[in-house]
Computed example of a mutant assay.
Amino acid sequence: MRALVVYESMFGHTEGIAHAVADALSARGACVELVEVHAAPRAIGCDFGLVVVGVPTHVVGLPRQPAVPEASRRTGLVIAKADFGIRKWLDDLTMCDHQPAATFETTSDRSAGSAARATARRLRDRGAEIMGTASFRVVDAPGPGTAGEADRARAWAAGLVLDAAIHRVG
């Protein structure tokens, strides 16, 4: 099975979880393409058995590109990212009907809403069948990820391989 893992990350937390997800998919036999959102294909063909999208929860949902300078100012960190984010990618995206997909988010206790659920809704609007959503905790935006979250991400992703395979057969 071919799998595509697309992520947007500002502070590296979502990227780290995306790598854990990709590693678990690969360990279960998937041929995985891991790409940051600005390099992700805008058209996803039916040759992908699974598409996984990861995004940080900002304020109450999906990040907005104007949030990048604000996040830099608030944290004092320089965030050098392309000004093409998950919202624009989802707006431009075309995919096969019934495309198996899953979403995950990184979030802190101070975040409200869910970027994973918002992403799942947008993917569903484009024909995807959502196999699952997951949320992984970080201490704070620039701070460290929560211990054990990469392991939880690997376990979640391992289950996705089975779900996607059942979807193909069913």
Rank of each mutant, 00 (worst) to 15 (best):
H167V: 11
T106V: 05
L25R: 09
F11R: 04
V6F: 07
E33F: 02
C31R: 13
I44V: 15
V55L: 08
I17K: 00
E149S: 04
A141L: 10
A80F: 06
F104Q: 00
T106P: 02
S72D: 03
A22N: 08
E70F: 14
H98E: 15
V32N: 10
G159M: 09
P66S: 11
D151N: 09
P56L: 06
S135E: 13
T14D: 00
H58K: 13
D92H: 11
V78P: 00
L93K: 08
S114L: 02
S9H: 03
L90E: 02
G12N: 00
L34E: 09
M1H: 07
G76Q: 05
L4S: 03
F104P: 00
T94Y: 00
D47P: 12
E8K: 01
A165K: 15
W156F: 05
A22F: 03
K88N: 00
R124G: 07
L34I: 00
L34Y: 00
P144Y: 00
Q65K: 03
A118L: 13
A158H: 15
E149L: 01
C96N: 02
G49D: 12
H19N: 11
M131W: 04
A24D: 04
P63Q: 05
A80R: 12
A118G: 07
R122K: 10
G145V: 06
V32C: 12
W89K: 04
P63G: 12
D92S: 08
S111P: 00
A102M: 01
R87A: 10
L4P: 10
A158C: 13
H58N: 14
A67V: 07
L162D: 08
K81Y: 00
P142Y: 09
G45I: 15
D163K: 15
M95Q: 02
R168F: 11
E15I: 01
P41V: 04
V55C: 13
A158W: 15
V60A: 13
T119S: 09
R152L: 10
V53C: 09
Q65A: 03
D47I: 10
G85C: 05
V21I: 08
G76F: 08
A101C: 09
A30N: 13
V59A: 14
A82E: 11
V169A: 08
R64H: 14
A80L: 08
G76H: 06
A153V: 01
A115P: 11
A153E: 01
